Structure formats: structure tokens, C-alpha cells
Simulated assay, not measured.
Amino acid sequence: MPKIPATAVAATGIIGGYAIARWTKKRPLGGVALAAAGAVAAYEWHRAGGSKASVGLSTAYIAAFAGSHPLAKKIGAWPAVFTAAGTVSAASWAVTRRAKAWAGQPA
């Protein structure tokens, strides 16, 4: 089975969680999707960069989700969700790439 990068999982969790909550009109269902993707991403972040990377990126994931709410009032819901997803993806990419470089693995 091909490995899906944690960067993609995290972005999909934020975008997919919002989409599910919006289209089903069941916010808890969107939260389940967000949490499930976050757990998978955290596992991959831990594998790639260790505990510090996993904790830091998991915190960024939660902060991006929380930050999208007030941002949505300024720029709209979907732009805020895409901004949050892009931000956490960029952080994930940077941290996991750096961790791989330190470990001597190809980035």
C-alpha cells in the first residue's frame, strides 16, 4: 500500500472535516473526520520526526482549525479553511523534510 504523506492527510482532515460538517449539517461528524485525520497525521509526524515534531505539528493542526473560525468572519468560510489547511501543510512539509534531512534520509 502506498504511503500517503502526513502533509496531505492533515490538509484533507481540515478540508474534509469542514465539508462533512457543512454538507451533512452534523458538526460532530465533521469533528470525527478532523480528529481521525489528525490522529493519522500525528502518527506519521511521530514516525518522521519524533515526539517533538508530532506534538508541535499536532498543536499547529488544532490551532489552524481553531484559527479558521475567526478568520472565516473576515474572509469567508472556504477561504479560511483553505488557508488553515495550507498553513498546516506547509508546516508539516517543512518539519518532516528537515527531520528526514537530519536522519540522513532522502527528502
Rank of each mutant, 00 (worst) to 15 (best):
P2H: 11
P2M: 12
A8E: 11
A10L: 05
T12R: 05
G13L: 08
I14W: 07
I14T: 08
I15N: 02
I15V: 15
I15C: 04
G16M: 03
G16I: 01
G17F: 01
G17S: 04
W23G: 03
G30Q: 10
G31E: 07
V32E: 11
A33Y: 04
A36D: 04
G38P: 00
A39D: 06
V40N: 04
A41S: 06
A41I: 03
Y43Q: 07
Y43G: 10
E44G: 09
E44T: 00
E44A: 03
E44N: 02
W45S: 12
A48N: 09
G49L: 01
G50P: 04
A53W: 05
S54H: 04
T59Q: 13
A60I: 09
Y61C: 05
A63N: 09
A64N: 04
F65E: 03
A66P: 14
H69A: 12
P70V: 13
L71Q: 07
K74A: 14
I75Y: 14
G76D: 08
A77I: 07
A77H: 14
A77G: 13
W78H: 09
W78E: 11
P79I: 10
P79N: 06
P79R: 05
F82I: 05
F82P: 00
T83Q: 06
A84T: 06
A84N: 12
A85S: 03
A85Q: 01
G86K: 11
T87I: 07
V88T: 10
S89E: 04
S89C: 09
A91C: 15
S92T: 07
S92G: 15
W93K: 07
W93D: 02
A94R: 05
A94I: 02
V95N: 01
V95M: 01
V95F: 03
T96C: 01
K100M: 05
A101P: 01
W102Y: 10
G104R: 12
G104V: 06
Q105M: 10
P106M: 01
A107Y: 00
